[in-house]
Simulated assay, not measured.
Amino acid sequence: MKEASGDLDAIANLIEHAPEGFSVYSGDDSLTLPLLSIGGTGVVSVASHIVGNEMQQMVRNYLAGQVTAAAMQHRQLLPVMKSLFTAPNPTAVKAALEMKGVKVGPVRLPLVPLTAEEQQHLQSIVQPSINFFVS
């Protein structure tokens, strides 16, 4: 199940009372690590379109018991995660993919492209992160 309510208490209750083999995935990138810590399985991720390898490594580190490394990665990824939701999805992620050189085309109505100001803000967060994580 993809869980995107943001209510960790309710998610913990769901996990606690779920039948064996029932998996709960975070539907909110920024709650991936907290959800894993209460028994979640993984994430249905928007940020992974931009920093997929880094998200995967964060989850792998957590599952391998390298909690400090996973927490550090989470903190580093958080600005990217948050910046992708400054406009209705998938507007910002499409813009970020274009910044990364992936041609995805414009959003369709009723969505509208980012304003120049929103585009500049997104680029100020995403572009340094892309350069940081690539190296």
Rank of each mutant, 00 (worst) to 15 (best):
Y25A: 05
V104T: 14
G40M: 08
L63M: 13
M99R: 07
V59C: 12
G6N: 09
E118Q: 15
N13S: 13
A96F: 08
Q123S: 14
G6H: 07
K100N: 02
L122G: 07
Y62E: 03
D28Q: 14
T86N: 12
Q120N: 12
I38F: 05
G40Q: 10
V59L: 09
S5Q: 06
E16G: 12
E54Q: 15
A69L: 14
P19N: 11
P110L: 05
G39L: 08
I15L: 10
M58N: 03
Q76H: 02
N53I: 01
L35C: 04
G21E: 03
S45V: 06
V43Y: 09
E118C: 02
A70G: 09
T41G: 00
V107E: 07
E98Y: 00
L31T: 04
G27A: 07
K94R: 14
I11V: 15
H121Q: 15
P19R: 13
L97V: 05
V102P: 03
A18H: 06
Q66F: 02
V67N: 05
P113G: 06
A92Q: 02
V46I: 15
S48P: 05
S48M: 13
Q123W: 02
L33H: 07
N13C: 12
E54G: 02
V80C: 11
S83Y: 05
G101S: 09
Q57G: 10
Q123D: 11
A92P: 02
A116R: 09
Y25N: 09
V24E: 01
L33E: 04
I50E: 00
T68C: 00
V104W: 10
V43D: 04
K100H: 08
Q57T: 14
F22V: 13
V93Q: 08
P110C: 06
Y25L: 15
A64T: 09
L78M: 15
Q76N: 03
N61L: 11
Y62R: 02
L31I: 05
F85S: 10
M58I: 10
G27H: 09
G40F: 08
L8S: 09
Y62S: 01
I38V: 15
Q123I: 00
Y25Q: 06
L109T: 15
A70I: 11
Q73S: 15
K94Y: 02
V112S: 13
